[in-house]
């Protein structure tokens, strides 16, 4: 029997999730429509023709992403908890960390796929080129990672409560305050063409957040999944 290793199992789980999404097309499509809806509804705040919207474009972008991401996380965890698949995964010789990382990275892939479509549409609707500064890609990568990292952990916890739909945002949003604030501020600074030294502190903050909570999540995931 071949030896199990974390990398191989993590990839197997990601592959399974991507395949599942490819067949059902449930998660990304519903997230995308919802994200666009948030963007459109938010735009009613501004008077037409005003340039005010450029100043808060970063906020709208990240809020749309967070709200649709909450939907996606819940749905992605549902495929594990319904039918007892999580139990079955825990029965395999796979390490708990491979299961957790697999779920985190498949959620990350979904969120990146969502943004690949959303970014250009956002540029059209808001007349703001978010990608004018290449550092934006670093902000997107680090913030999305932090979001799905704690999002995956909390969606698992929320899925075992009596009120899972409401529990996920209630637990997740307060904890995510630092990186959401950082991502919004960094994005706004880039839209305003500020130099790197003005917003590098925000990127550092997001990276520190990601590192701290990666370590904590890997430690606490084991007791969370064990019955």
């Amino acid at each position: 029997m071949a030896k199990n290793n974390i990398l191989k199992d993590t990839i197997a789980i990601i592959r399974k999730d991507v395949m599942l999404e490819f067949h059902t097309r449930e998660v990304i499509s519903s997230m995308l429509v919802f994200a666009l809806l948030v963007v459109v509804v938010f735009s009613f705040i501004f008077e037409p023709g005003e340039h005010e919207q450029q100043r808060i474009a970063g906020g709208v972008y990240w809020m749309a992403l967070v709200f649709s991401g909450l939907l996606g996380l819940g749905k992605s965890m549902l495929s594990e908890t319904s039918g007892g698949n999580l139990e079955a995964l825990l029965l395999t010789p796979t390490s708990r960390n491979a299961i957790f990382l697999g779920k985190v990275f498949s959620n990350l892939i979904f969120m990146f796929a969502l943004q690949a479509v959303m970014l250009p549409l956002f540029v059209i609707l808001y007349e703001v080129n978010l990608l004018s500064d290449p550092m934006m890609l670093a902000v997107i990568a680090a913030t999305t990672y932090g979001f799905v990292l704690l999002g995956t952990l909390f969606s698992l916890i929320a899925s075992r409560t009596r009120t899972r739909e409401i529990m996920l945002p209630l637990l997740l949003l307060p904890v995510l305050v630092p990186i959401l604030l950082a991502a919004i501020q960094a994005t706004n600074a880039m839209v305003a063409m500020s130099p790197l030294e003005d917003y590098i502190k925000w990127i550092r903050l997001i990276v520190v957040f990601d590192i701290i909570f990666t370590a904590i999540s890997l430690v606490v995931f084991d007791p969370v999944v064990e019955e």
Binding site: E26, S79, G83, N85, E87
Partner: peptide, 10 residues
């Protein structure tokens, strides 16, 4: 078990 342990979409 009495649970199927299968992904419905696959």
């Amino acid at each position: 078990s009495h649970q199927p342990f299968l992904y419905e979409g696959l």
